[in-house]
């Protein structure tokens, strides 16, 4: 059954719908409305740099929080019995069946000035918190939406970890902490890296979350790009230039990840 022919349709498909569109972004980024070559789209990047800084900051904080929650969660879950593990994984995936915009919208009801959280705080006698339309709300939205993408890869790496390594370390006299620090954690790094990618990239590029929970107060890279293509500031050439810069960020991140993963299939574990 050695035959390469079945791959032909998909190779053509990839060329037309993956490679050509990315090349089009490059072409648009370096041309103007008349189709002439220009670097103009890259000279007005003041706004870009400002937005980029803000996006990177929020995405980095959200990714760090996700990692802090997901790692212990995945670690403890991996120690439970097979049935618990399976059911828990199902319940991690299940929220995906409820549209993410809708779930984010529900957070609005919770975080609003007269929302559930403040109603609850009022009952206990704590003064209301102002969370909605702040950076904190946007970060919360990111953590909420992308946490499963951090949990899944870390969990699948720890779950498949060869128990004999741990036993060997214990036999050689390592304490609990040492086993974790010198054996378990280093072996789980590929899962951590893949989780960081799967949270960080959607976080820097989101535009719906910032609109709903940030109320236009925090403006992210995704918002900036969306504005150029479907929004008020219609300019696909500038939009392509910004997309190209973001693509570079993604490529840098991918290269870093490839150094850690085993290359071919390190990327996604679902």
């Amino acid at each position: 059954m050695k035959t390469k022919t079945p791959a032909i349709p998909y190779v053509v498909w990839m060329a037309v719908f993956v490679v050509v569109p990315l090349l089009l972004i490059v072409v648009y980024a370096f041309t103007n409305y008349d189709g002439k070559f220009t670097l103009e789209n890259f000279t007005n990047l003041d706004v870009f740099l400002q937005v980029c800084g803000n996006s990177l900051y929020l995405a980095a904080v959200a990714t760090a929080i996700c990692l802090l929650i997901a790692y212990p969660f995945a670690y403890f879950l991996a120690q439970t019995g097979p049935t618990t593990r399976k059911v828990a994984m199902l319940f991690i995936m299940l929220p995906m069946w409820m549209n993410f915009l809708l779930r984010t919208y529900a957070w609005m009801s919770i975080l609003e000035n007269h929302g559930f959280l403040n109603q609850l705080l009022a009952l206990v006698g704590i003064p209301p918190l102002h969370i909605i339309n702040t950076d904190a709300a946007v970060i919360l939205g990111m953590v909420y939406n992308f946490l499963p993408f951090m949990i899944l890869p870390i969990f699948s790496v720890i779950e498949k970890l060869d128990r004999r390594y741990i036993e060997a370390a214990q036999d050689l006299g390592a304490g609990k902490l040492q086993v974790f620090r010198r054996v378990i954690f280093p072996l789980s790094v590929p899962g951590v890296i893949s989780g960081i990618m799967m949270v960080f990239i959607p976080s820097i590029s989101t535009f719906a979350i910032s609109k709903l929970l940030g109320g236009g107060m925090s403006f992210l890279l995704g918002d900036l790009i969306e504005m150029q293509f479907l929004g008020s500031a219609y300019n696909p050439h500038l939009g392509s230039a910004i997309s190209l810069m973001m693509l570079l960020l993604v490529i840098i991140a991918m290269l870093i990840m490839n150094r850690f993963g085993d290359g071919e299939e390190g990327a996604v574990m679902m």
């Binding site: 050509v20 569109p21 990315l22 089009l24 972004i25 990239i201 820097i204």
Partner: peptide
């Protein structure tokens, strides 16, 4: 398409 940001995939396909 898996690693890339959704918005870039979307925008590039829209251009095409």
């Amino acid at each position: 398409p898996m690693t890339n940001a959704d918005i870039i995939t979307g925008v590039s396909l829209m251009l095409l």
